[in-house]
Amino acid sequence: MRILISCVLLVILSLGLVFALEQAPFGSNQIDNADKPGRFYLNQGMEKTGAANVVTSVVVTYRGFDTLGEVTILFIAAIGLGAVFHSRKKVKRYEKEKQSASLILQTGCRFLFPLIVLFGTYVFIHGHLSPGGGFQGGVIIASAFLLLFLGCEEKKIPMKSMNTVESLAGIIFVGIGLAGLYWGESFLENFLPRGMDYMLLSGGVIPIIYIAIGFKVGAELAGIVAGLIERNP
């Protein structure tokens, strides 16, 4: 009886959503009036900022303040998790009986770890030229540290330097915004020279901000995974 009522309610809800979303003109070619910001970013984004990837220039330059808010949200989540973990005891490694990794897995993880970190660094340094950016590169670096936790257990990750790197990267991001206020006209303005198109050192402040975001997200997520593995629930 309960299942029947919930199925009927689900059908009514989905029909309501479908009829409401039918009115919106998704995907059609809107000319002039309704799509002016989109056309402006696509046509003139590369000339004004110098970055070949228009999504990157929108995220960092035109809507840079929202990116600062998003980085703050990640930081608050990490602080919340740290507050929960602070009062728990650490798991003692020699007390639990667990099976250590086989030889193939240990050798493979030791071989793959620097390659994955290199790939993550490639993704966030070339953020303004190819798809990718700071957040994606940071998650790839955190996955490399997760592989190190799973594969070889005798290598210790220095957690103090992770926290230091994360805080420094956050300070650098806000510092660049304040430098834009000092040398330019507004907070987070693009005050460095534009450079040639399609080169690595182009686009003004955009590569520097993405490098800071990449380091910050990577160190944060690696710290969260380390806390989850090592502490008792």
């Binding site: 998650v139 995974v225 989850l228 008792n232 629930p233």
Partner: peptide
């Protein structure tokens, strides 16, 4: 492709591993 790369990196490795650690405990 930007959104696809974000969804790939988060959904493939990180979410799966965090859930598996939570199931272990």
């Amino acid at each position: 492709p930007d959104v696809a790369m974000a969804e790939a990196s988060i959904g493939a490795a990180l979410t799966t591993a965090i859930f598996v650690i939570a199931i272990k405990k």
